[in-house]
Design a protein around this nucleic acid. Structure first.
Lengths: 358, 358
DNA sequence: ATGAAAGCGCTAACAA
DNA sequence: TTGTTAGCGCTTTCAT
């Protein structure tokens, strides 16, 4: 019969004391324009008359308005979030890489207005975690770091049309056509080996990982090439161990039973530190007696005595390249280069220098 | 005049090939129930008749449905995201803490359905980054890790009613009433000192940070207490340096000019490594000649020769406690304890053991 | 150059 | 127990 009573507070009343942070409507009311105009002020400022724009911006500033992400994401289907699966660091190995890389990535992503979303997954299932995030449209894209030869992440993500970039080239798969960024490990090992050659070493051993590691094989190839380029024969100088200090220490003792060997290029800092342990036990002096080079320039390499020369990955550049590539991928733009290969650099410390004394 | 033509595709047609992932409506159609019922199946399963529930769940499973996060967030005002400002690791210091902590946090948060959002900020402005995230309602809460005496983050966040927990107690502020989790640094240093006492050392030096570091002062107090409890006088045995290997190395040489000193408890692994450097230069044997204990159990401590004994923070427990506390804070539940203090443990390696030989 | 209307996918409040 | 309605805050489309 009678009109239902409108129990809503009068519009102005509501806006006077908004419960939470200001919304687009608050700003619009305050500036005396429509909500759409405020939206345009944010996303298409060119459409506004300069004076309107300025007025709106003043209100935005004054109210400390920031667009609600959920609403924007719901509408534009873009979260401005980049997902990264974050695996536990292996205890006992000097995995300082992730720390440095992650910070570079966060910084690089923030420059394009993106944030990094960390998620975890069952260590036994390399795909765990991705699907959930994808189906709930929580992230715009993924950065995949834990790729090695034959990992299924790329195929999985490609199947679902998920935008992604890998840190790590697609080793074995000639058909892979996804974007990637990687560091030239062979070039790093080559530089390390050449550095020891320049220091006068001729019999330089390689201390690396098992044959199954594609990354390890790549790095090893750089050592081999550098030796052969000098007319030296690497035969019998390559050793494979698991990536821990003690395995490296013992292997080193074995190698040093051949007194002609005076140099070690290692696939990781962990292994390099293992060599230093063996030298300490044999009362040999790093640098002067035996030259040692590690890989990754971890914190451990920096603070170990007497300082471990190491191949440093340009992680800052890697992060920038990843974000840049992601940008193209997300814009459905053909990615300029499918893969970007970056050069590592050598950080020389005393473990590879002949002329120093404690 | 005439009815406007309905240009929409018939409902069923639309749903047959949805553009993106399935939505709640897709599931509802498929299961022959209303959307609300599907929502209830997800959030209040008890409300449904078992057979309805089962049918809906079957469809959800079959379609691989996952609720759209943006929509849910917009409605519930909860993103299930925890913000963490991620600072760059200091090069040259062995900051392995963040790596371990971060993984523990990601894992702990995932158990309550939360993800960790990383953001960066101007290093010169401890508040940079927080406000943006807050105003755009991007995160539910913050974990604040870079607190030290007098940092403004807590006050800032409290002013805006932002839920947060700090890793680090509110040192100087007796009025602080926010939730926190911390590790008892004094207890750690006490354990380290007692360990060296048990190894037979009597003149044990403290190698710590500048007086301005509240954390450093706390740790130092543990060393002092342990000595006094034994009737020993710490006077003249405490040294303050900046947190880098070389400063520690030089300070150690200075301390060792007093030949009665045979033990070092350090405020960090970086400093502990510095002590080891000095010992190497003096051809003294760690453990046998001089006992050394570091702090944080970083990767560097683990791989350094001959193994650096160190105080290990229970970061896994810290992460769990943080998430647990956050859970209470977010539920507006009175937090059980305002602060949770966790005990570190001592990881003994050879740098503090008398009876080993290389 | 500005405004009005519709709707993204979900859940809170209410009705049946 | 299930369905209907409304609306979270934003942008897209279309009208003015």
């Amino acid at each position: 019969m009678s009109q239902p009573i409108d129990r809503r507070l009068p519009r102005a009343e509501v806006r006077t004391r908004p419960a939470g942070p200001p919304t687009l409507a608050t700003v619009a009311d305050e500036a005396g324009v429509s909500r759409q105009t405020v939206s345009n002020a944010l996303n298409n400022p060119d459409l506004l008359r300069p004076e309107t724009l300025e007025r709106v911006q003043e209100v935005i500033e004054r109210l400390g308005y920031s667009p609600n992400r959920a609403a924007r994401q719901l509408r534009t289907r873009s979260s401005h979030l980049v997902g990264l699966r974050f695996e536990p660091a292996q205890e006992g190995t000097s995995n300082a890489l992730m720390d440095r890389f992650l910070h570079s990535l966060v910084a690089a992503a923030s420059r394009t207005g993106h944030h990094v979303l960390l998620f975890s997954g069952d260590p036994d299932d390399p795909l765990d975690g991705y699907d959930d995030l994808l189906r709930s449209t929580a992230v715009d894209a993924f950065v995949v770091t834990d790729t090695y030869a034959g990992t299924p992440q790329a195929g999985f993500l490609k199947d679902r049309d998920a935008p992604f970039v890998t840190f790590g080239r697609p080793w074995e798969d000639p058909h892979a056509d996804h974007a990637w960024v990687d560091v030239d490990g062979a070039a790093g090992a080559r530089a390390a080996t050449r550095h020891l050659l320049e220091q006068g070493h001729r019999r330089i051993a390689w201390l690396g990982w098992e044959r199954s590691s594609r990354i390890g094989q790549d790095r090893r190839s750089g050592w081999e090439e550098a030796l052969r380029a000098e007319g030296l024969d690497p035969t019998g100088l390559g050793v494979r161990v698991t990536d821990n200090v003690d395995a490296a220490r013992m292997a080193t003792h074995h190698v040093l039973d051949d007194p002609t060997v005076t140099g070690f290029v290692c696939a990781s800092d962990t292994l390099g530190l293992g060599v230093l342990h063996a030298l300490a036990e044999r009362r040999l002096q790093p640098g002067a007696d035996v030259g040692v080079v590690g890989f990754d320039d971890s914190a451990a390499a920096q603070v170990a005595w007497p300082g471990l020369t190491s191949v440093r990955q340009p992680l800052e550049d890697v992060a920038v390249a990843l974000v840049h590539t992601l940008h193209d991928v997300l814009a459905h733009r053909p990615v300029a280069e499918q893969g970007r290969m970056l050069e590592p650099s050598l950080v020389v410390r005393r473990s590879s220098l002949r002329g120093w004394t404690p």
